[in-house]
């Protein structure tokens, strides 16, 4: 066997698997979306019917809020942890990255423990404060999911920032605020865009968290799920899946071209 045939043989299992279980199913999904009663119009329905367009708008808004909140929190904490070495730093870092392995359902449950009827906030505050099943609860769940992922990307970039650049700016007379605006943020920008895109895409597609919390909220993954299981509207479920998939795929493509990192998006 020549070298070339050997190398190609090595790729064969991958090719067979990804054709059988990725390429063909996705094609089938696409066909399913246009095989419904409305044909191609199913894609128009997404923006024509209030139920779907409202869902779309709400999902985008919650995802955007998640993205900016996660960026703000993680960049502040990330820069702090990179620039300061103190006792307990590693413990804080472990706490902040621990939820990486938590699936969305578990995070949903943790939000219920925080803001549900038997939740912590309801117990320690006067009156009836239950937010777990509202848009706020969903937002907190997505934020919980995103903080560790954004933090790791930002910290990796911050560690590569040359501290001499900040020092140079200081010697040239820049105050701490100007240093952040003129040196740190521009240096971190690619990774901020990248991790922001990851956070946004993840929030758009998050199913597990929505499944536990969003019983009364229409976000895209929940609508796909209910269209498929309850209404048996397979064409719409498929069309929404495809639109969602394309959006998240493009976002993560941008993210990866900017930072080159892969942080697990699903879960």
């Amino acid at each position: 066997m020549t070298n070339r045939t050997f190398v190609l043989t090595c790729l064969t299992p991958l090719l067979i698997f990804s054709l059988a279980f990725l390429a063909f199913p996705l094609m089938r999904l696409f066909l399913a979306s246009v095989e419904g009663d409305n044909g191609w119009a199913v894609y128009l329905d997404i923006i024509r019917k209030p139920r779907y367009i409202n869902t779309l708008v709400l999902t985008v808004l919650v995802s955007l809020a998640t993205t900016f909140a996660a960026l703000a929190v993680s960049t502040t904490a990330g820069m702090f942890l990179v620039r300061n070495k103190f006792r307990g730093r590693n413990i804080l870092l472990s706490i902040l990255t621990l939820p990486l392995a938590f699936p969305g359902v578990v995070i949903g449950f943790l939000i219920i423990l925080l803001g549900g009827r038997q939740g912590l906030i309801n117990q320690i505050t006067p009156g009836h404060v239950v937010f777990a099943y509202s848009v706020l609860g969903l937002f907190l769940g997505y934020l919980y999911f995103s903080i560790p992922r954004v933090l790791l990307t930002v910290m990796a970039a911050a560690e590569k920032l040359d501290p001499a650049l900040e020092e140079a700016a200081r010697t040239l007379g820049a105050n701490p605020f100007r240093v952040v605006v003129d040196v740190i943020l521009p240096g971190l920008m690619p990774s901020l865009i990248a991790s922001g895109a990851i956070a946004f895409a993840t929030a758009m597609g998050a199913f597990g968290t929505a499944f536990t919390l969003a019983t009364n909220i229409d976000v895209i993954p929940m609508v796909i799920y209910t269209e498929f299981t309850l209404s048996a509207n397979i064409a719409m479920a498929a069309a929404l899946s495809i639109v969602l998939g394309i959006v998240t795929w493009i976002l993560l493509l941008i993210a990866r071209s900017l930072s080159g990192t892969t942080v697990a998006a699903g879960g």
Binding site: L22, P25, I234, G245, W249, L252
Partner: peptide, 23 residues
């Protein structure tokens, strides 16, 4: 090819599951 097999990182699991169920 690498980009293609990485699709499941980007495309929500729900959509992939639907695709598998359809086929």
């Amino acid at each position: 090819l690498e980009e293609f097999i990485s699709l499941p990182l980007a495309v929500p699991g729900l959509a992939l599951a639907l695709a598998l169920l359809q086929l």
